[in-house]
Nucleic acid binder design. Structure first.
Length: 311
RNA sequence: GCCGAGGUAGCUCAGCGGUAGAGCGCUGCCCUGAAAAGGCAGGCGUGGCGUGUUCGACUCACGCCCUCGGCA
C-alpha cells in the first residue's frame, strides 16, 4: 500500500445486494458512466439457456456494456466459486490494462468473498468421492463420517456441525485427494484485495419491499415463459451446479403433475425470499460495504455517489 | 330451521382439570471448489365470546357467535 501514494492502485468496483434489488440495471448505467465492463459474479447467469431462470442481463444491456461470465457455459458443466475466481481474475486484469473499470456484480456472498480474500489452494471437486461418501453416510450414518474427520482434522471437525453433510464430505475429500488437512491448507491465501483497491457498494431496501419485488419478478418470469424454459432444460442432463437454480425444482414438480402451476409459483416466491434473506445475512457482516437504499435514493443519485467515490 | 363436525401460533392441526405443543411458515445466525446449495438456533399465543362448576378451566356444563358438511 506504500506505493499508492505515488501511483494509483487500480480500483475494482463491486455492486452487491439481495436478488431483485436492481443490481443488473444499475450496473449497466454505472458502467456507461465509468467506462466500465461488468463481471457477473453469479453461479447461474454463467449458464446458457437459463435466461429467465437466472435473470441473465438482456441482450440490449449486453450490447451497451461488455459483460463477462454471462451466458457461456453449457448447463451440463459444473461451476463453482473456485472456477469463478480463476476466470474472473484474468478478466479483471485485462480490463484494467485497457484503462477501463472492472465492475463485479452479484449476490453470492461466497463468490465475492473468494474473489476478494482468495481461496486456499485446494483440490477440485471429486464428484465420485462425494457420491461414495453420501452412500456411506446413508448406510452407516453421518456421525461416522464426522467422527472420521475428527480423527484426521479435529480443529476443522469441531467447526463443522455434525449434520452438515456437504462440509464434512468436502473436508474429507480434501484430505482424500491431497493427503493434507483443510486446516493445514488454510494458511496464507491471497485474493484481489491484496492487489487492488476494492470498492464495495451494496443496494438495499426494506425487507417488505425486497419481498414484493421478488413476487413481481416471479410473476413476470412465469409470464415470460419460465415453464417452457425449464421443460427445455430438463430434457438434458444438468450439472450439479445448474440443477440448483431456483425455479427448477418448483417447476419440475408442476410438470410432473405433482401440483398446480399456482403452487409452483408460490413455492418459487417463497424460496427466492429465503434466498434473499440468506444473502442479507451474509452481507450484513461485511463492514466494508457502503450501502444505498434504493427507495430513498434515485438511481441517478446512487450512480453519481458511486462515481464520486470511485473517481 | 334441524342434525353432525369443528373454532388452539401466520397456515395445517395435536394434546390436556394444574395458564400449551408439532410440522410448515417466519426471524436470527453459520459458511473456503454444489453457495440460487447446505447447516444451526429461536415459539412468534387474548386457546371464538360470555356465564357457571372448581382451589384451579384451553380442557367440564350451559348460552351466544362463526365455519364446514348433510337434511330441509
Amino acid at each position: 500500500m506504500r506505493i499508492s501514494k505515488f501511483r494509483k492502485t487500480p480500483k475494482v468496483v463491486f455492486i452487491v445486494g439481495p436478488t431483485a434489488i436492481g443490481k443488473t440495471r444499475l450496473a449497466v448505467k454505472l458502467a456507461m458512466k465509468l467506462r466500465g465492463e461488468i463481471i457477473s459474479c453469479d453461479s447461474m447467469q454463467i449458464y446458457k439457456g437459463m435466461d429467465i431462470l437466472s435473470q441473465t442481463p438482456s441482450r440490449s444491456d449486453r450490447r451497451l456494456v461488455k459483460h463477462h461470465l454471462v451466458n457461456l457455459l453449457s448447463p451440463d458443466k459444473e461451476y463453482s466459486a473456485a472456477v469463478f475466481i480463476k476466470r474472473a481474475a484474468p478478466i479483471i486484469k485485462s480490463i484494467l490494462k485497457i484503462g477501463k473499470t472492472p465492475i463485479v456484480v452479484g449476490g453470492s456472498g461466497l463468490y465475492i468473498k473468494a474473489l476478494i480474500y482468495g481461496l486456499f489452494p485446494s483440490p477440485a471437486a471429486d464428484m465420485k468421492f462425494r457420491k461414495n461418501m453420501q452412500r456411506f453416510a446413508a448406510r452407516h450414518g453421518l456421525s461416522r463420517l464426522h467422527k472420521r474427520l475428527m480423527e484426521i482434522d479435529p480443529d476443522c471437525a469441531s467447526r463443522i456441525h455434525a449434520n452438515d453433510v456437504r462440509r464434512i464430505i468436502r473436508a474429507l475429500e480434501i484430505f482424500h485427494s491431497t493427503g493434507r488437512t483443510m486446516t493445514e491448507l488454510k494458511s496464507a491465501t491471497k485474493g484481489l484485495g491484496d492487489v487492488y483497491d476494492i470498492k464495495l457498494f451494496g443496494l438495499k431496501a426494506k425487507r417488505s419491499s425486497i419481498y414484493s419485488r421478488i413476487d413481481e419478478r416471479v410473476d413476470k418470469m412465469f409470464a415470460d415463459g419460465i415453464v417452457k424454459e425449464v421443460r427445455r432444460l430438463t430434457r438434458k442432463k444438468l450439472a450439479m451446479t445448474s440443477k440448483e437454480a431456483l425455479g427448477l425444482k418448483e417447476i419440475t414438480g408442476y410438470l410432473d403433475g405433482e401440483y398446480e402451476a399456482e403452487y409452483a409459483k408460490d413455492m418459487l416466491k417463497m424460496n427466492t425470499r429465503r434466498f434473499a434473506k440468506r444473502q442479507l445475512t451474509w452481507f450484513r457482516k461485511n463492514k466494508r460495504i457502503k450501502w444505498f437504499d434504493v427507495e430513498r435514493n434515485s438511481e441517478a443519485k446512487i450512480i453519481a455517489n458511486i462515481t464520486k467515490k470511485v473517481g
